[in-house]
Design a protein around this nucleic acid. Structure first.
Lengths: 144, 144
DNA sequence: ACCCGTTATGTTATACTATTGCGATACTCT
DNA sequence: AGAGTATCGCAATAGTATAACATAACGGGT
């Protein structure tokens, strides 16, 4: 689904974004983001943990803290219905992503929310939205 | 937020819906639905479990199976971002709900998805959507 | 150089959420 | 009655996430 667009390039962009905003993209955080970028599907926290192990025994809090940082920085999203995480290629401010997740190949496409179309109940003020669509992407539908 | 609209009435409606469709609303399932209806906020599986205990020691699978049944029947929804469950007052077919969850009082309002406004990527066929909005409801905003 | 506040990490243990697998029971259909 | 299906009870375990506390690393003020 996604064309594995150069994760090195994305990583550099993330670095720049963090520098701009005075955020510290430390080695652990950077490594986690790298893993997310290399994957072409959402990754589970414990899979990240396992991938981190080889160079020093990481514990769960390590990876969850890195994920908290990345999601807060808008560099990653949590996929709520999968308990998984995916890199965000738009580096937008947190909150506005809408995800299309292919259940065949696992690929994720991201668009931005056009809030206009959601009719909130009278007086309700939306702070944050979780929008995830599950289905089958074009490629997988062609492939059968 | 929600006016605790007679859960007994809703329960009766659920019974009718199940009868119509040849689904068995067994005692366990009925009791779980009742608990969901009585709550005015999403309920966690283990809280349901605890509430079920008094009349016979229920185990996790019991409650998860009941929840699976109810969600499949469209009588309840899973709130993905909270790992919690809420009764569905519309008894519509599964899949089309859009939730507004107040982070102050926990209340949930439900609307239906107007699919038209979601711009899927080229060729992507959406099978199921998770749409949850978090914020503050009108009542809580007034109350401070 | 020293102290101190802040931020990030390491470490251990534990809490919370969910599923698997198997056996017992009950109901329906023939 | 016997076969088949659906539900439930039960025990064990898998998977996800956080709490709580200790340590390290950096930067600024004195």
């Amino acid at each position: 689904m996604t064309a594995q667009n150069s994760s090195a390039e994305e990583l550099a962009r993330a670095e720049a974004v963090c520098a701009d905003r005075g955020l510290a993209l430390t080695p652990v955080r950077r490594r986690v983001l790298e893993l997310l970028l290399e994957a072409n599907a959402p990754v589970k926290a414990y899979d990240l943990l396992a991938a981190l192990k080889p160079g020093g025994g990481a514990q769960p809090p390590t990876v969850y803290r890195a994920l908290d940082f990345l999601t807060a920085a808008g560099l990653a999203h949590r996929v709520e219905a999968l308990n998984a995480y995916t890199a965000c290629v738009h580096a937008h401010e947190t909150g506005g992503a809408e995800l299309y997740i292919c259940e065949s190949c696992g690929g994720v496409a991201e668009t931005h929310v056009h809030g206009a179309c959601h009719e909130a109940p009278e007086g309700f003020k939306v702070a944050r939205s979780v929008i995830e669509h599950y289905g089958k992407c074009g490629d997988c539908r062609k492939a059968g």
